[in-house]
Design a protein around this nucleic acid. Structure first.
Lengths: 194, 194
DNA sequence: ACCTGAACACCGTTCAAGT
DNA sequence: ACCTGAACACCGTTCAAGT
């Protein structure tokens, strides 16, 4: 239980190596097979037994979380940095575009992980919360400045970004994300109707 | 091959009954298991052998298409009707909201089918094209009236609706779709920035 | 503290044989 | 023209035994 619940790394060096090999194999496979990647193949490519995979990651979710949780930390940092940007709306939009980029990682698994329900107090949940708070500050700044409508929350915006990614995952033109992102941005700007 | 390619119904009466039983069973299961429903269980619940399922629906896609293709016809009809609505924008929005409702069918499988690549000349493709043209007329009317931005196409809007559905599929609050829909609508209205 | 791999269950898909 | 179900391949998951 130690590793799964604490989220810490394994104590033994060989176990840490195995964990890393599993993550690398999963990362490589996810780009090809998408979210339905075969766990057995992950173990096979990592050169470990299937039981070892389950030792490190008791569920699919645990594997995905380990793959993409660090992205949340990067996104939090950017949000903090851009909080002093002279143009609040521009800073917010830049950050949301970064969410679009990071979310696209691993066939949208990045954004999916970010929108998953995380175990209370888990490392992923903590990182996610920290990112969310930093982003919310960006949003509120733009709202206080009158550039963004006051009646939208960050969660709703981020889930819309997830939707954009998911809808374009198997689309004929996977780069249709930016025009759709543009509609989202215009939808949260002040000055429009309703 | 006849059935799969022509999309027509089977000639024999027992085969038509089997087809219907398969569709009913699939429809019931999809609400529970989502898009990853087990084909074997579909056949089991329909009371036919697994080979019979493959006879009628050679691929998963074929099964899904058969389940939801008729919705396209309904949506086309509504678009035609509302083309004479005095308020073009209101008519368009009402139709898009209908897309949201119909798309939500079967755990968003409805919208997914609508956004799939269909075989050229297949019945689904024809129905989808007809629906798309009728909807595009609604959109153009609202654009000609100056109520909706001229630089957005229907395909982009519909894919955004698909995204909204997918993003809310396993969400804590699955009825967050309407606020997100509101952002989309405001994003395509005239009068906003950019 | 961690690894191994056999064991079991379940599902996807094909196809020869039947009616 | 259609149905059947055995046959094969593959994967998910657990767990007793090992180091």
């Amino acid at each position: 239980m130690s590793e799964a619940l604490t989220g810490g790394l394994p104590r033994r060096a060989d176990a840490r190596r195995n964990r890393q090999k599993l993550l690398s194999a999963a990362r490589a496979l996810i780009d090809v097979q998408g979210r339905d990647l075969a766990l057995e193949e992950v173990a096979r490519r990592a050169g470990v037994a299937i039981g070892t995979l389950y030792n490190h990651f008791p569920t699919r979710q645990a594997l995905f979380q380990a793959l993409f949780a660090d992205d949340a930390e990067v996104l939090r940092q950017r949000a903090e940095e851009w909080r002093s940007d002279p143009d609040p709306a521009e800073a917010l939009i830049r950050w949301l575009r970064l969410q679009l980029e990071y979310g696209a990682r691993g066939r949208s698994m990045g954004a999916t992980v970010m929108n998953m329900r995380h175990e209370e107090g888990s490392p992923v949940q903590q990182k996610h919360t920290a990112m969310h708070e930093a982003g919310a500050a960006l949003l509120q700044r733009a709202q206080a400045n009158g550039q963004v409508r006051a009646d939208v929350g960050l969660a709703r915006i981020l889930r819309l970004i997830l939707g954009i990614l998911l809808a374009n995952e198997d689309a004929p033109d996977p780069d249709g994300t930016l025009p759709m992102f543009g509609i989202l941005i215009d939808g949260i700007r002040t000055g429009s109707a309703s």
